[in-house]
Amino acid sequence: MEKILEVKNLTKKFKHIAVNNISFDVEKGNVYGLLGPNGSGKSTTFGMLLSTINPTSGSWKWFGKEGTDTNTLKRIGAIIEQPNFYPYLSAEKNLEIVAEIKGAPKSRIDAVLEEVNLLDRKKDAFKTYSLGMKQRLAIASALLANPEVLILDEPTNGLDPEGIIQIREIINKIAKSGTTIIVASHLLDEIEKICSHVIVLKQGTAIYSGSVDAMSNTKGFFELKADNIMELVSVLESFGIFSSVKEMDHLIIAQISTDISASELNKKLFENGISLSHLQKKRESLETQFLELVKQNNL
């Protein structure tokens, strides 16, 4: 797989350590989530990779080339922290400036504005835009030069549910076109819905880097319910394929240790004289996995 970005031992010290010796790779065509609570070093990491912050130590390669120069930046589309535009200029004029810097053709301006549904407001000054429109304009600006990688720092921060859905749809559309995306967020379900890979940061340290699926090493769990709870528990325990069987909120939670499908389990239980009123196989949500990871890596 072609590597878009390779980060090695990246460190940034301000007065405190903001980013501590993190390493990760980004492969072409995937959607990466940079996950971590506020102040975990997400924006600082992006700042270094985008050449606005000088790293204390460490190195990285964009497209196999050491560091970040202006030609590299022209192949990247990025929005950081908040949408930055000249407030007194219209969307169109603002994008003309970006096109001039990136060397993109002016004809792209209408195309990207169309893509984020802002074409009819292109003559209006940026300062008259709502937050959702500003965020969408930022995405349009990042898409202007047909970037190979898109970097989005908290793209849905402060948006209302409708705005969040709009942004998510745009990101999904871009991801389908094969553009590599790195998106930072502290919103777990955000990452879960759009990312295939995730890098988890905690206090500047990367505590996990890999696919979302492999993040948790558990095989998932069953939620079960039957009329006779006591009997259900003892039968489940007798199978020997669950690491634990617990009752929680009138549901039996059985952690799987040897993989088994829901229909197979249903059949086995029926053979043992138990008819279920509820059966569902589940994986831990990203949130539980994340909290689990953070707990394991208590620094």
Partner: peptide, 13 residues
């Protein structure tokens, strides 16, 4: 307006 930062990110040295 944080435009210097944005200009740099867009590829202005």
């Amino acid at each position: 307006n944080r435009m210097f930062k944005q200009n740099v990110i867009d590829g202005l040295s």
